[in-house]
């Protein structure tokens, strides 16, 4: 992935905006931002972003490639869609944030130990395994995603939540043994593999 990053820097040397337009989901919208700041003011986690969306859009145009892609900002998006419905220019901001996050990950530029990136990857691995989310396994992986010691601490802290879910029949220990699944896993995996191949090929072509 480090290679892809270098390739992209070479290819788009003079324009990070063009790189985003070509490779980031809904990236062609970035240039439409008029810098009003409504998105930043509407974001529920706004104060926790190093660079709120409006700023990211400006930085993309200013060619601040590394600052944008290594930022934890877009990983703060809760997918509440406030920014989308309020943007006067109708930029699909939520999707651009997801797209920037995914592209940064593809290039290996996510800040170390980014918690949402870790959880989101766990979620993807969990759902693609059997075609359906296994909540119990996902929960346990989440608790232990920052190491064993931290995992034990988290498990103890979250004990009351787990017990309450068990007691009310909203969690089952049997999910550890296989659990919910679709039937056509073979077709499902072949479909995802094909989709990934098509997408990787497109990005590789852009980088070439």
């Amino acid at each position: 992935m480090g290679n892809l990053n270098t390739t992209m820097i070479e290819k788009y040397r003079n324009s990070f905006l063009h790189e985003v337009e070509a490779n980031v989901e809904e990236g062609e919208w970035v240039k439409m931002c008029m810098q009003c700041g409504v998105c930043s003011g509407s974001c529920p986690l706004g104060p926790h972003w190093d660079h709120p969306p409006q700023e990211l859009f400006m930085m993309i145009r200013a060619g601040k490639r590394e600052e944008v892609l290594t930022s934890s900002s877009m990983w703060m998006c809760t997918s509440c869609y406030n920014c989308i419905v309020r943007c006067p220019r109708e930029l699909p901001i939520t999707h651009i944030m997801h797209g920037l996050a995914h592209y940064a990950k593809r290039l290996g530029l996510v800040p170390e130990n980014q918690q949402t990136e870790k959880f989101a990857q766990l979620f993807w691995d969990n759902l693609t395994n059997t075609g359906r989310v296994n909540e119990l396994k996902l929960g346990l992986k989440l608790y232990f995603m920052n190491g064993f010691g931290e995992g034990i601490k988290m498990s103890l802290k979250m004990q009351d939540v787990g017990l309450n879910m068990l007691k009310t029949g909203r969690m089952s220990p049997f999910e550890l043994l296989g659990g919910h699944s679709i039937k056509d896993k073979t077709g499902f995996h072949a479909m995802l593999q094909k989709a990934k191949e098509l997408e990787d090929a497109k990005i590789a072509k852009h980088g070439a």
């Binding site: 997918s79 797209g99 691995d125 759902l127 359906r132 990934k196």
Partner: peptide, 23 residues
């Protein structure tokens, strides 16, 4: 019949646009 997960709004780290749309 045999429906699968949609990857909600948090699938984007592991899944690109096309794999997510495919779901």
């Amino acid at each position: 019949p045999d429906w699968n997960c949609c990857s909600a709004s948090i699938g984007y780290a592991g899944g690109g646009e096309l794999p997510r749309i495919a779901l």
